[in-house]
Design a protein around this nucleic acid. Structure first.
Lengths: 219, 219
DNA sequence: CAACCCTAAATTGTCGACAAAGTAGAGTAA
DNA sequence: TTACTCTACTTTGTCGACAATTTAGGGTTG
């Protein structure tokens, strides 16, 4: 899984990645205020790099900022998660459609072997699948779309927010085996170069996830 | 058309808006380098606010930046425009679907009266329709989706890029009367609360635009 | 002549200090 | 008591200077 090629070069990069990690994983609580002076002492950098990091976090929709007042970590709401999945349905559906058109044969072969390795894990009872495997699968299709804007929106934006929700609302639940079948059918559609079907299946796949989450949230 | 409620408060805001305008409208050429010192003298602000403005431009995908090297205005390519329209098809399709579910009756009524005013203009031969009217129509539906992420992605991101392409590639062309009919049908679907159809019609509408542009680019 | 290295200039990245805006609290008047 | 105002303090916004990196040019060497 050598996807995350984004590696920090400047001090602001490192601070941004660190802050993003802390926010997504809940080390910095949702809704809490991000004090520039406080963070600059905590991370041992100047306020300028903290400001740049916060600006990037704002662009990622992980924090909200009011002029002359400050920045706060976004507060998570069930409605927000629903909205996020609506966007995912739309964008990843299109990603699957484009992947069916634009992935190379060898990329598709890789995707299938990835699926096989997942199959073995699922069969041997490792429900570990969920987190890493699921993300890996979706990433490959997103990248397979070869659409720069689509890739950036999903990997730089949406996915960190989704992960923040998952971590903080304790969503590392089931939907393992059924999700695997859905993945299988999506790959099959891509392999057949059936763009229409690939999009439809991906949209359903994400709709199912949404429903599963909704029922859990309302309980 | 009182949509653009974003009004600058800090100096960095103003500089960002000004720079964005200059880039989108071509006063700053595509592909050109953005020198921080140069811009700071030109706009009479410190380098810090220029840097913040450039960071935001980067988040908008209007400039690309390399660490320790600098920022350049993105270069426009026909492929890039195609990719942009693929994202638009996906996101605005979803926006139309959600608008059919979430717009209030009075908002829909407003949308219809807007369409009527466009109809009069088109009939009286003002092909002025294209630019302002078309954008206005699409904005209302986007806002009607009531989905924060969707709205932000389209209005803060995609639309400025689309406008940059339109301006710089000289795309203020025809597709006036047919586009009007398409708009009419979309509104009808929304009025009938037919989410499925609204999405489908919006996607087709954008696909047609894409085709129209493609044929023009390849000529 | 080409390739490499080294130096100097220019540009970006980072820092600390000052200016401006917002916030909280005490005090006063109705 | 309540509401308002003024003041002191905290926090964010902006600035100029310094540090680090890249880039361009000349010079040397094979």
């Amino acid at each position: 899984m050598t996807f995350f090629t984004e590696q920090p070069v400047t001090s602001a990069d490192k601070t941004f990645f660190q802050l993003r990690k802390d926010i997504v994983e809940g080390a910095i609580l949702a809704g809490s205020k991000l004090s520039e002076t406080e963070l600059s002492t905590k991370y041992a950098v100047s306020r300028a790099v903290i400001r740049e990091a916060i600006n990037r976090l704002e662009a990622s929709h992980l924090v909200e900022r009011k002029a002359n007042v400050g920045a706060r970590v976004v507060t998570l709401t069930p409605e927000g998660l629903i909205e996020l999945y609506q966007v995912r349905e739309s964008l990843e559906g299109m990603a699957a459609r484009l992947a069916a058109q634009n992935m190379t044969d060898s990329e598709i072969a890789d995707l299938q072997s990835l699926l096989n390795s997942h199959f073995e894990k699922v069969q041997s009872g490792q429900s570990y699948y969920q987190e890493a495997g699921d993300v890996d699968f979706h990433y490959r299709i997103i990248l397979g779309s070869k659409n720069k804007h689509l890739i950036s929106m999903l990997t730089d934006g949406i996915y960190h927010l989704v992960r923040m929700y998952r971590v903080q609302l304790g969503m590392s639940g089931p939907r393992v085996t059924t999700a695997f079948d859905e993945h299988k059918h999506i790959v099959q559609a891509i392999c057949n170069r059936d763009a229409e079907l690939a999009e439809m299946l991906m949209r359903r796949h994400i709709l199912y996830s949404k429903s599963s989450i909704e029922s859990k949230l309302l309980s």
